[in-house]
């Protein structure tokens, strides 16, 4: 495994008019990260990778390989034990405003409407102050972008699973955090909804060019979204190899099936993963 980690981060993206001008300050560095759960189970062993600023990196790996643990450590939700982790040049800490974390569960507040839930993240981070008017407009725009116009005042229990997850996506993107961590956010959705949300995520990412670290076990999803795919070994998880996805952007997810490169990548990653799976 060859990692060009170090001070020389290639500044690949230069998005004009992006909300967040990507810079080396918003990258993620993980080196020699190991993690042992209470009870002695070694979940992560010597994980090492880098996400440069504005890059969309996807981690794929077999079930239970410690992907989520890595993400939790980066987010500061899990204490860091061995190795070094830095996000935008700083050590991980829970609740950093420059990190937005989207879970596999929608984690919506049942007593808030779609609008209230979308605003929740910025609301708690504005430290009690009145939200400026443009935030509401932005929220409405995001709700439209994820296809929930007309459902602003609906409560989560009135929504389908996919609609709830879209609400959570809008909540995550309303927070102006330059670093996004996404833990199988579309894992529990049907294939159709998933494709729509992936396309929507790509559009939002292309608009803002934020740094994204995305976890999935779905290879098609990984190839469609990623600049670079990190393949995880079986537990204890470490990064087995890095595969840059050299397909031009913006991508049309529906058309990827017709691209020979897509199938090459799929085969290649599948071979890497199959070696890690015990059938």
């Amino acid at each position: 495994m060859k990692l060009d980690a170090g001070a020389t981060v290639p500044h690949t993206t230069a998005a004009a008019g992006a909300v967040w001008a990507p810079s080396a300050q918003t990258g993620i560095w993980v080196e020699n990260l190991s993690h042992r759960f209470v009870g002695g189970l070694l979940a992560v062993k010597d994980a090492k990778f880098a996400v440069t600023a504005g890059e969309f990196v996807v981690i794929v790996g077999p079930s239970g390989c410690g992907k989520t643990t890595i993400l939790n450590i980066i987010a500061g939700l899990e204490a860091q034990q061995i190795g070094s982790v830095s996000v935008a040049g700083k050590a991980p800490k829970a609740g950093r405003f420059d990190i937005a974390y989207m879970f596999a569960q929608d984690a919506l507040l049942p007593w808030r409407t779609v609008m209230g839930n979308v605003l929740f993240g910025v609301e708690v981070r504005s430290e009690g102050g009145q939200l400026p008017k443009h935030v509401y407009e932005e929220a409405r725009e995001l709700i439209a972008m994820v296809g929930l116009s007309g459902f602003e005042n609906a409560y989560p229990r009135q929504l389908s699973h996919g609609m709830r997850q879209r609400t959570a996506l809008a909540r995550t993107f309303l927070m102006p955090s330059p670093v996004l961590l996404m833990d199988e956010p579309f894992g529990a959705l049907d294939a159709h909804t998933k494709l729509m949300l992936e396309q929507g995520l790509l559009r939002l990412w292309e608009r803002d060019k934020r740094t994204v670290l995305f976890i999935t076990h779905d290879l098609a999803e990984a190839i469609a979204l990623a600049d670079k795919i990190l393949v995880c070994t079986a537990r204890p998880g470490s990064i087995k190899c890095e595969i840059p996805i050299e397909m031009e952007r913006p991508r049309n997810i529906g058309a990827l099936q017709n691209d020979a490169r897509y199938h090459d990548y799929h085969r290649r990653i599948w071979t890497e993963l199959a070696a890690e799976m015990v059938v």
Binding site: A75, L77, A94, G95, R96, F97, I99, Y101, F103, Q105, A107, L109, F120, G121, V124, R125
Partner: peptide, 19 residues
């Protein structure tokens, strides 16, 4: 999950309690 959300958002303990 909501407590996890609250931690990841950086809610103060007061916010976590009231919200």
């Amino acid at each position: 999950t909501l407590i996890r959300l609250s931690r990841s958002l950086g809610c103060t303990s007061r916010q976590q309690f009231t919200k």
